[in-house]
């Protein structure tokens, strides 16, 4: 069992490494993508400077906490879209029959598929996340928690993408639903929880788990609480398990399209 996990880990890392090497062929584009993504994220600081000039706190967050919220949002988005970029194209992969190429591989089909390419600009998101942590306040404890929450959050975002994309096995073209859910997660993630009321808040801890990905980590970085920490771990495992379960359940219904496809 342990050897199998070790082998799978090795294959996944190799897949990411080769995808990254492909992207690094053009160095100028590679670095400009990263730098421009960081500048792109930094533009939004202007929005919050203006809002905080009107009010001392927004939705219960101080200015530094907003920066940290942006840091966590960028970090989790970066982890998910860099390492598991293809989970966001999974619905199309299933519908167009491109999954055939991954079925014949000896390792885990889902992991092989979703790690087959990387989004370079997301390195900029991850770096930006760490810069925001430095501005918030860098301590060893904060750094470890931040890294941990970026990983758990990245896993949850990926799992949500896989869960909704897997519905394609049953309902065909569900890209619109999957894309809408992913877009909802990204849009809500950078605004403080306190400005929303009622039903939306329930969504944040269920179908759109932004609460677990972003809001709870902010609370923990401010004031650590072991039971909340365990909740985040538990929910992350739950989302990963559901994603794998649904994908493999659906895979049994998958039929090939005889698509001729060459992966170089």
């Amino acid at each position: 069992m342990l050897t199998e996990v070790k082998n799978q880990w090795k294959v996944t890392m190799l897949s990411i490494k080769y995808a990254l090497q492909r992207e690094m062929l053009n160095k100028v584009t590679f670095f400009s993508n990263i730098i421009f993504m960081m500048l792109n994220n930094a533009c939004f600081i202007v929005q919050w400077i203006i809002l905080y000039s009107l009010k001392n706190e927004v939705g219960g967050y101080s200015f530094k906490q907003i920066l940290l919220l942006w840091g966590i949002a960028a970090g989790t988005f970066g982890v998910s879209h860099f390492f598991f970029k293809e989970s966001y194209e999974l619905s199309e992969t299933i519908n167009t029959g491109k999954l055939d190429a991954f079925l014949i591989q000896p390792k885990n089909v889902l992991l092989s598929c979703i790690t087959s390419s990387v989004e370079v600009s997301c390195i900029g998101d991850m770096i930006y996340g760490w810069i925001m942590l430095f501005i918030y306040g860098f301590t060893l404890k904060n750094a470890l928690l931040f890294a941990f929450f970026c990983i758990t959050g990245g896993f949850i975002l990926t799992s949500v993408a896989v869960i909704f994309a897997s519905l394609s096995f049953w309902f065909g073209r569900v890209e619109i639903v999957a894309n809408t859910i992913n877009s909802l997660m990204t849009n809500f993630a950078t605004y403080p929880e306190g400005i929303f009321k009622g039903f939306v808040k329930i969504l944040f801890y269920t179908i759109l788990p932004i609460g677990i990905v972003n809001f709870l980590p902010i609370q923990l970085l401010k004031d650590f609480n072991f039971s909340t920490f365990l909740i985040i771990i538990g929910v992350t495992i739950l989302f990963i398990a559901v994603a794998f379960f649904l994908f493999y359940k659906g895979l049994k219904r998958y039929s090939s399209s005889n698509l001729m496809n060459v992966r170089v």
Binding site: T29, F36, M37, N40, C43, F44, Q47, I50
Partner: peptide, 26 residues
């Protein structure tokens, strides 16, 4: 240059943050 899309990201964020969310008076 090979990829001009990053310039568009910057342009779009400039329009979005400075031009869309707040009037100039803010």
């Amino acid at each position: 240059i090979e990829d001009a899309n990053p310039f568009f990201w910057l342009y779009s964020k400039m329009i979005l943050v400075i031009g869309t969310i707040f009037p100039i008076e803010f």
